[in-house]
Structure formats: structure tokens, C-alpha cells
Design a protein around this nucleic acid. Structure first.
Length: 220
DNA sequence: GCGACAG
DNA sequence: ATCTTGTCGC
């Protein structure tokens, strides 16, 4: 069951944070990679969580699952995972295959307490996981090189918590961080392998499309 | 005290 | 997250 208060959510993070596996490097040639994303109704009281599993080599979708439900927690920066986690886990349970890597829409270690959504999902599922955020939550960085592959370290409190990575020439960079059972360098490599054409990973894009479609269909 | 603040 | 008009570029 979801936490009933901010204080309780913080205690949950404190308890789970030590379980994050930072040994890495994690799979460098995964067979399948999963993307997870959530779409919200305008009213904000309903959501659809989607997981798509892609063949890591062809990027074709080989499995997927969706769940319609309600946000499990108010949106609080730093406690974002509690909002979407139940629905995402429900969707993951409906998959027929076990993906080799989870690519989450949000941060992993690039979090005020080093336990963002990607860490949380990784610990709970036991699967290797990384976070790919579109905007920063914590940290400082220098502008990465302008071409695809350019990157710079994301630093916070004296430590490197992620990488600011340019996935396409001339586009805004994304924020990559480790979630669970992955090294940062491998995480960045996996993201580049998932962005042959667009700024965001194909995993994120396919999951985004799926949950939006389902939400629209469920709305009428 | 004030601003910042994943999605 | 979601709403929202026009605009630039392939």
C-alpha cells in the first residue's frame, strides 16, 4: 500500500535506498529493453501506466501492457515515485516476458536522497534499471558538446550522480542516471543505442504513445 | 525567509 | 503531467 504521508514516504526511501546495487556494469547487450511511462487525465485523478518491451537490436515492440488507475500519492518533487509506482508495477506484472533492463521516465541516483523512480523500480523488481529525465531535479553541469554523444557529468553534493547526454545533434540533452544494477557509462551507452532517430529513447516513446492512447480511449 | 522543484 | 498558437524545418 502507498505511504499515507510525506514522512512515511521518506522513511520508505530511507529503508530501500541501501538495497540499490551499484556494482554494475549491468547488461551491455540486453536482448530486451522495457520502457515505462504514465499519462494523466486532464482532471489529474486518473492515469494510465504503460510498459513496452523492445527487441534491443531491432527496437521492435515485442510485448506490452497497460493499466488504468489513480495516482497513488500527491506529486511532491523527490517523492514522485510513490505517485506512479503502483500502476507501473501492475503493468509490469502483466508482461509475458521479463525484460533485461528497465528504462524509466525520470531519475535514478540524480535525486536529493539518491533514490529516484529508477532506483525504486529497480530495487522492487530486482531488474537492472536506469533513469532518463527530460529536465533536471538536482545537480550542476556544463553544457555538453553539440553533437550526438556529447556529454558532461551531472554533479550534486560533490559526487557524480548522472550524465547530461546529447542524444541527437543540436537537441536539448537528457539526464541519464543509474537506477539499479547498472554502471553510469553503460546506462549512457544503452540510451544512445535507443536513440537512433529522436531525442528520447524509443522505449520511452512507445510507452508514452501506448498510455496516451489507452487513456484517450478510456475517456471516451 | 526565498526560490527551486523528475512527472 | 496537461493546456495552448504559431512557427520553423525536412
Amino acid at each position: 500500500m502507498p505511504p499515507g504521508s510525506v514522512a512515511e514516504a521518506l522513511r520508505v526511501q530511507d529503508k530501500l535506498r541501501p538495497l540499490v546495487d551499484l556494482a554494475g556494469p549491468g547488461p551491455t547487450a540486453p536482448a530486451t529493453v522495457a520502457g515505462l511511462d504514465v499519462a494523466y487525465a486532464e482532471s489529474g485523478d486518473r492515469l494510465a501506466a504503460a510498459v513496452t518491451v523492445l527487441d534491443a537490436r531491432t527496437l521492435a515492440v515485442v510485448d506490452s501492457a497497460v493499466t488504468v488507475g489513480r495516482p497513488a500519492f500527491d506529486y511532491v518533487p523527490g517523492l514522485f515515485a510513490f505517485r506512479e509506482l503502483p500502476a507501473l508495477l501492475d503493468a509490469l506484472d502483466r508482461l509475458t516476458v521479463r525484460p533485461d533492463l528497465l528504462v524509466c521516465d525520470g531519475h535514478g541516483l540524480a535525486h536529493p536522497r539518491r533514490f529516484g523512480l529508477a532506483c525504486h523500480l529497480g530495487v522492487v523488481t530486482g531488474l537492472p534499471a536506469i533513469g532518463v529525465g527530460k529536465t533536471p531535479l538536482v545537480g550542476e553541469w556544463d553544457e555538453p558538446g553539440p553533437r550526438r554523444g556529447g556529454w558532461s557529468p551531472l554533479r550534486d553534493g560533490g559526487e557524480v550522480v548522472g550524465r547530461v547526454l546529447r542524444t541527437r545533434d543540436g537537441v536539448k540533452p537528457v539526464f541519464v542516471s543509474v537506477g539499479h544494477r547498472m554502471s553510469l557509462a553503460n546506462a549512457a551507452d544503452r540510451v544512445l543505442a535507443l536513440t537512433p532517430r529522436y531525442r528520447l529513447p524509443e522505449t520511452t516513446r512507445t510507452a508514452d504513445r501506448l498510455c496516451r492512447d489507452v487513456l484517450a480511449a478510456a475517456s471516451g
